[in-house]
């Protein structure tokens, strides 16, 4: 997805530079039309970038959850290795409080459940966002082609 975005941005840069050239070459009616499309393109691009920002925000949130999941899994493994001989303490603020082993295990298990649920939630959220992003990308590329056509430049030239 990132690669596609980079490519899209590169081609949009081409549109930008095309605007300058086009403006110099022809200030006929096509130029006015091109300008209208360019404005639309700009606003659509801004929307698209906002969506991208949202996606990356959700991504980092999910990433954080995954880190927590790993850490809690490690703690669970450690707690499972213990027997009643070992005393478990929980750090609350600056003090260590003695805690029951079973209680600690239950807490960690509950936490794991919660984190897994949250990850699932973000997963579906991200899928939905990606779908919207794909749709938007199509809109952008068709707008871009329209713009190039309005300028009388060949479409899809590299």
């Amino acid at each position: 997805m990132e690669r596609k975005t980079a490519v899209l941005e590169a081609s949009l840069n081409r549109v930008e530079s095309g605007r300058i050239h086009g403006g110099l070459k022809s200030n006929l009616t096509s130029g006015i039309m091109a300008e209208a499309i360019q404005k639309k393109l700009q606003s659509e691009l801004e929307k698209y970038q906002q969506m991208q920002k949202d996606v990356s925000k959700s991504m980092s949130a999910r990433h954080k959850l995954e880190t927590q999941l790993t850490e809690n899994n490690i703690v669970k493994e450690e707690l499972d290795l213990l027997d009643s001989e070992n005393t478990v303490y929980k750090l609350i603020g600056p003090v260590l409080v003695k805690q029951d082993l079973d209680e600690a295990k239950a807490t960690v298990n509950k936490r794991l459940e919660y984190i897994n649920g949250e990850i699932q939630r973000y997963e579906t959220l991200l899928k939905e966002m990606e779908r919207k992003l794909d749709q938007h990308r199509e809109v952008l590329s068709s707008l871009q082609q329209e713009y190039q056509r309005a300028q009388g430049r060949p479409v899809g030239k590299v």
Binding site: E71, N72, I74, V75, N86, T87, V88, Y89, K90, L91
Partner: peptide, 21 residues
């Protein structure tokens, strides 16, 4: 010794167990 096993939990272990840890 007291060992930090993560997420704020500390466990009292003997030296051998700790080395294994």
């Amino acid at each position: 010794v007291l060992v930090d096993v993560g997420t704020g939990y500390y466990v009292e272990k003997n030296v051998e167990e700790t080395k294994e840890f």
